[in-house]
Simulated scan of single mutants.
Amino acid sequence: MFDLIPFRRRSEDPFGQMLKSFNEMVEDHWLTPFGSNTQSFRTDIREEKDKYVVEAELPGIAKDDIEIDVSNNYLTIRAKRNEYHEEKDDSNNFIRKERRTGEFVRRFYVEQIDEDGIKAKLEGGVLKLEIPKRPGDDRSRKQIQID
Rank of each mutant, 00 (worst) to 15 (best):
Q39E: 15
R46W: 05
E27P: 02
G124S: 06
R141C: 13
P135L: 03
S140K: 09
S21Y: 08
N93W: 07
S36T: 12
D50F: 07
D69V: 03
E98I: 10
V54E: 00
G35M: 05
N92K: 05
E111V: 06
K121R: 12
S40F: 05
D114K: 04
E47I: 06
K121G: 04
A120F: 02
D114V: 04
S91M: 14
E98F: 07
R46N: 10
D138P: 02
N73G: 05
T101K: 11
L127R: 01
N23S: 11
I131S: 04
Y109P: 06
E67L: 13
A56K: 03
Y84M: 07
D137Q: 13
K63R: 12
E123I: 06
S71C: 14
K119D: 09
E130L: 02
G60H: 04
E67K: 10
F108A: 07
K88E: 09
K63Q: 12
T76G: 04
H85I: 13
D44V: 13
F41C: 01
R78E: 07
L129H: 00
T43I: 07
F22I: 12
F94D: 08
R106V: 07
S140F: 13
K133N: 01
A62N: 11
R134D: 10
L129Y: 00
I95D: 03
K121S: 14
S40A: 14
D116P: 06
W30K: 15
D65N: 14
L75C: 05
P33D: 06
R42F: 14
E123D: 15
K133P: 02
R100Y: 15
V105S: 01
R99H: 13
Y84W: 08
V54A: 05
V70D: 03
R46I: 12
V126P: 02
L122T: 03
I68Y: 00
K51T: 04
I68E: 02
E123Y: 10
R100W: 12
S40G: 15
Q39C: 15
E67F: 15
V54C: 03
F94G: 05
N82D: 15
E123H: 11
P59N: 05
D137M: 10
P59W: 07
E24H: 10
S91Y: 13
H85P: 09
E67N: 12
K133S: 05
I77A: 01
P33G: 06
F104M: 06
R106K: 14
F108M: 12
D114C: 04
S140H: 10
A56G: 00
D64L: 04
R134K: 15
K119H: 04
D90P: 06
L127H: 01
R106Y: 08
K49C: 08
I144Y: 06
K63L: 11
E130M: 03
T38R: 09
N93C: 09
D137E: 14
E83F: 14
V105L: 07
K80V: 14
D137F: 11
D69F: 12
D64K: 08
P135V: 03
L75W: 00
I144P: 04
N92M: 05
